[in-house]
Design a binder for these strands. Structure first.
Lengths: 222, 222
DNA sequence: GTCCGCATGGGACAAACGTCACAGCGCTGC
DNA sequence: GCAGCGCTGTGACGTTTGTCCCATGCGGAC
């Protein structure tokens, strides 16, 4: 696919004019990576931010014992590693391709240059970063103020909502859900089981069907 | 104090030219609030962002049972409620003055206008939001991947580091620490006690002295 | 087919965490 | 002084969460 075509479909393209889009496309370097490729490592110096042209990327941190906390999953049209480009620090998280992925690499210098020339780009990025901040505030609230059951119920409801809005996210494994929820695989399995015996969900091979949306919402407040 | 004088001392003033600073000052409305005043409420529509000219403001979320999770404490020269101005959503958190506080209120429309006229302002805000994001990623990691002991050890080390860098933060009560750490008062008390018997800290009336910095750093990894 | 890796299910147990209750202490305001 | 309030200290208890371990099932690679 043409790079310009890709750029036209990034999440914040609507806020940019044609000239800015052209310039973005001209500054980007394409890079294809396989599933499992580590794109940035937490703590490494950051030279670029990335747009996902196709594929999917996981943004996460890891404990010394190897437990994973996912901050965000970046879909096609979205960006990552944006923070260090603007605050000048090292990469804040480790990022890994979850699928064969095509990236557009935007070097720091190029971004700063583009922002000078196309102020609309700065506005668009402010919008993006603000949204990301809101998401993270939600994640903090979840982790600090709710039980695993509550967080899981919320995750299930979110997934269901996303599925209705067109883009059906791939079914997550228990391990992946655990990494989103700040817990471990076994807890997810047990919590799902308890939702099933309570009649809130039906566990089918590889997928979960919600039977009692309101019941789940009750659980979500724990 | 003169409003312009205040604006000159906001954290990101260094990135702005004189004209932009003047314009910011001209757009701001001053507001004084007592300690304990709620400035924004989570979920309310947002009309403005705020600069703290003097005082201190707490940004937090609350569970249904009343437990508090502090996202951030805003000191003089810093800003808050910035997210909803740029992503268009409601206030993401409840904010409360911890001291008698002087605010500069920057209405959404004024900010958008200023950014059009002074693109440097957008750059400065990108820098700010990126830094805030990095902080929150750290908070998420803490909550998801570390025990209360580990988080507390880190908090003590941070406070000590901040004290060395000139601005001695006010000693926190156990309840306040708990709100930072996503736990409850009793846990903080017990964890401090355990650090004391381990010889890592000395508990003095109202303040905590670090005796074994390296020992604390070890604990911080839990 | 067999083997292997990965996802799942589940039991037993231990550690971490939160709740409740109560007591003491120091300060402020009356 | 004394009452009231907020901060602290502590013990007992139950819940939540995490760890370890093993068994099952499924699918792809060989």
């Amino acid at each position: 696919m043409d790079r310009r075509e890709v750029i036209r479909h990034v999440s914040f393209a609507g806020l940019l004019g044609d000239a800015a889009l052209e310039a973005l496309a001209a500054s980007a370097v394409e890079r294809r990576v396989e599933r499992g490729t580590l794109i940035t490592l937490e703590g490494d110096p950051a030279e670029a931010m990335y747009l996902v042209a196709a594929g999917r990327v996981k943004v996460a941190r890891y404990s010394a014992e190897g437990r994973e906390q996912i901050m965000h999953v970046v879909e096609a049209g979205d960006h990552f590693n944006t923070v260090p480009i603007f605050d000048g620090g090292p990469c804040p998280a480790t990022t890994e391709a979850l699928l064969p992925t095509t990236l557009l690499v935007l070097p720091r210098a190029a971004m700063h240059d583009l922002i000078q020339r196309y102020p609309e780009l700065a506005t668009a990025l402010l919008h993006e970063l603000a949204g990301r901040l809101r998401m993270l505030v939600g994640l903090v609230e979840d982790l600090a103020l709710h039980t695993v059951h509550g967080r899981l119920a919320r995750l299930l409801l979110q997934q269901a909502a996303a599925a209705k809005h067109g883009e059906p996210p791939p079914p997550l494994t228990h391990t992946e859900m655990a990494a989103h929820l700040g817990t471990v695989r076994e807890m997810v399995g047990r919590a799902l089981k308890s939702f099933e015996v309570a009649g809130l969900i039906a566990l089918e091979r590889g997928s979960i069907r919600i039977l009692d949306r309101d019941g789940l919402r009750k659980c979500a407040e724990m």
